[in-house]
């Protein structure tokens, strides 16, 4: 494991933990898309089903379990927590996730490395992760609300994307037979959708800044 990969995993983990702590501290999930968080949970569950079939390392097992449980923890807060659930923008967060889930699943049936149960689910999770931020992007475009989406979370999520791309480049040049077109293509698309999200986040941030200026 190279330093880019490890740093990428850590920033990804930190982004989720930061979000969770922020929800806990402020007792609010305003501005956060439950649909995006649920898509991430689907991504983690379908990708990490291989926990039952293949063992790679103790590091991988622990990280996978943390990713799955923390994503469900965020969903629990948004859906079930007495106070936090009341701050959820239910009426605004209406993106039809089926429009993402179904095409991604179809695509994973057609384009994969191997037509098997775990392999198709793994491929599905890669495709879905690339577009999972879209409901969040739409919610942000509608509300300009950046309450719970702190700049820390946004920064860490972006750093995770950048570091993983560096990791692929590093592995491509240092390992024999390392090439994974599915991951690279969807990873690049994912980074592009993230950049779009980032752009709107900055826009909303500046708009909020203007609103809160003393007159």
């Amino acid at each position: 494991m190279n330093i880019f990969r490890f740093a990428g995993d850590m920033t990804h983990l930190c982004s989720i933990i930061v979000l969770l702590l922020k929800i806990q501290a402020t007792k609010s999930c305003a501005g956060l898309s439950l649909r995006t968080q649920e898509l991430y949970a689907i991504v983690f569950v379908s990708r990490y089903l291989d926990l039952f079939f293949t063992f790679i390392s103790m590091y991988n097992v622990i990280m996978k379990l943390i990713f799955i449980s923390s994503s469900f923890c965020i969903i629990w807060y948004m859906r079930c927590h007495r106070i936090v659930a009341q701050t959820y923008d239910r009426e605004q967060d209406t993106f039809r996730v089926a429009f993402l889930v179904v095409p991604c699943f179809m695509l994973s049936l057609m384009i994969n490395h191997e037509f098997s149960f775990t392999e198709v689910l793994w491929t599905f999770s890669i495709y879905l992760e690339a577009v999972a931020i879209l409901p969040q992007l739409v919610l942000l475009q509608r509300t300009f609300n950046i309450d719970t989406l702190t700049s820390n979370y946004i920064f860490l999520l972006g750093a995770y994307r950048a570091l993983y791309m560096l990791n692929w480049i590093y592995r491509y040049f240092t390992e024999r037979d390392y090439s994974q077109w599915i991951v690279w293509t969807s990873g690049t698309l994912q980074t592009a959708t993230y950049c779009d999200f980032f752009y709107y986040y900055i826009l909303s941030w500046r708009k909020n800044e203007r609103l809160s200026l003393p007159s």
Partner: peptide, 10 residues
Amino acid sequence: GPAASSHDEL
């Protein structure tokens, strides 16, 4: 290929 079947990244 070997990279396809062993998904060692998270």
